[in-house]
Simulated assay, not measured.
Amino acid sequence: MSAKNYWLAFGIGVSAGAAIALLYAPQSGARTRRKLRKGVEEAGDYLQDAGDYLKAQAERFGDEAQDAIKRARNQASHLVDRAGDRASDVVGSVSEVVNSAVKSAKARV
């Protein structure tokens, strides 16, 4: 069940429960109003707690995502550095081969 459907079902359940409680309440109107007020306050507290929890989770996931991005950047930077080192090694080797070939060609002339 998605979160939207959950909260919709929760709201319908709260409303239905309140309506049934009003219809079948054996106590006075003042007492019923106090109970309803308390129920609404508890529902508000529950929703506040749920919101705080969701906010904390979103912040935690955001922090984890930033950490993952930093790790990926560091790893990519490391790979680029290694590739640059390998390219420098290849250029050096090719340069040595070319210099050797040039010396050999000069020696034959």
Rank of each mutant, 00 (worst) to 15 (best):
K35F: 09
E42H: 10
R31C: 02
G13R: 02
L36K: 01
V102E: 11
F10A: 08
K70D: 14
R73P: 01
A76N: 08
R82C: 08
Q48W: 06
P26C: 00
F61C: 04
D67Q: 14
V14N: 07
S77A: 15
A9H: 08
E42P: 00
S88G: 09
V102K: 07
V94A: 15
G92C: 10
I20Q: 01
E64T: 03
R60L: 12
I12V: 13
A43R: 03
S77R: 13
Q48T: 10
A19P: 00
L23H: 02
L23Y: 07
K4G: 04
V94R: 10
K35Y: 09
G62I: 00
S2F: 00
V90W: 10
S100F: 10
S77P: 01
V98Y: 04
Y24A: 09
D85F: 12
L8I: 13
P26K: 04
Q48L: 10
Q57V: 14
K106G: 06
A21Y: 03
S93M: 12
G39E: 02
S104H: 15
W7G: 00
G44L: 06
G11W: 04
R82A: 15
G92P: 00
A76D: 07
G84H: 12
G11M: 08
N5H: 05
R60T: 10
S104P: 02
V90M: 12
K70C: 03
A72D: 11
L23K: 08
